[in-house]
């Protein structure tokens, strides 16, 4: 082979083809997808996250939860996502309209979180779990997020937010563990995660 320009043309065209095929065409085909109205509730779906939940989303991003948790439910008959209670239907493009970036994830060191807000709606549970996963889930490999909490001296009155810790996790007497705003935001985000509305392209149970 002697022809540099010809070589270059081939190199250009091959990548151009997949750039168009895998990014530009999808953008044209479903980059403009719109929200839809859910019949039973009369509400738009999906809704954007806002307030505390959207701040929590940033914490999810910054602390790399995606390296252990996916947010995508595979269909019935492919894996056991639905049987495990991770969702009532498969995930589809419309579920992610407002997500920047999308936290699809590729690892499941921990369970899928697409519907964690439905499966585990308890703020207290999430706070204890984030403070130290060993409290609720002995043997878990999820790291503790103690840096989202504050240990402080109990003032005149114990804080109503303080974690209820017992046994090996108990705080030294006179001290209490309280969640920071960050911890509360992150939990607000987790509770907002819920994709169980039936859609035309994704009926329940599929």
């Amino acid at each position: 082979m002697k022809y540099g320009p010809l070589l270059f043309l081939g190199i250009f065209l091959t990548l151009a083809s997949s750039w168009v095929g895998l990014t530009v065409i999808p953008q044209m085909q479903f980059g403009g997808l719109q929200t839809t109205k859910i019949e039973e509730t009369g509400r738009d779906y999906p809704l954007n996250t806002w307030g505390a939940a959207s701040k929590g989303r940033e914490l999810y991003r910054a602390n790399g939860c995606i390296y252990c948790h996916s947010q995508q439910v595979r269909p019935q008959g492919f894996g056991a996502d639905i049987e495990r209670g991770w969702g009532t239907r498969r995930s589809v493009s419309r579920d992610y309209l407002y997500d920047k970036p999308v936290f699809l994830g590729t690892m499941r060191t921990g369970p899928d979180l697409t519907n964690i807000g439905q499966r585990q709606p308890s703020v207290d549970w999430h706070l204890s779990h984030l403070y130290d996963p060993q409290i609720t889930s002995k043997g878990s490999t999820m790291p503790p997020y103690r840096f989202l909490f504050e240990q402080r001296k109990i003032g005149a009155k114990p804080s109503p937010d303080a974690l209820k810790l017992t046994g090996e996790f108990a705080t030294p007497p006179g001290y209490e563990i309280v969640p920071t705003e960050n911890a509360k935001d992150l939990v607000a985000y987790l509770l907002s995660l819920r994709a169980d509305a039936a859609l035309l392209e994704a009926p329940l149970g599929k």
Partner: peptide
């Protein structure tokens, strides 16, 4: 030649001015 194309296109479409929804997954 391929690397700068990949790197700049992906940064444009994901970080600087993100495309919508799961198109991000494809990119």
């Amino acid at each position: 030649f391929w690397f700068p194309w990949l790197y700049s296109a992906a940064n444009m479409m994901l970080v600087i001015d993100p495309v919508r929804g799961t198109v991000q997954g494809a990119v």
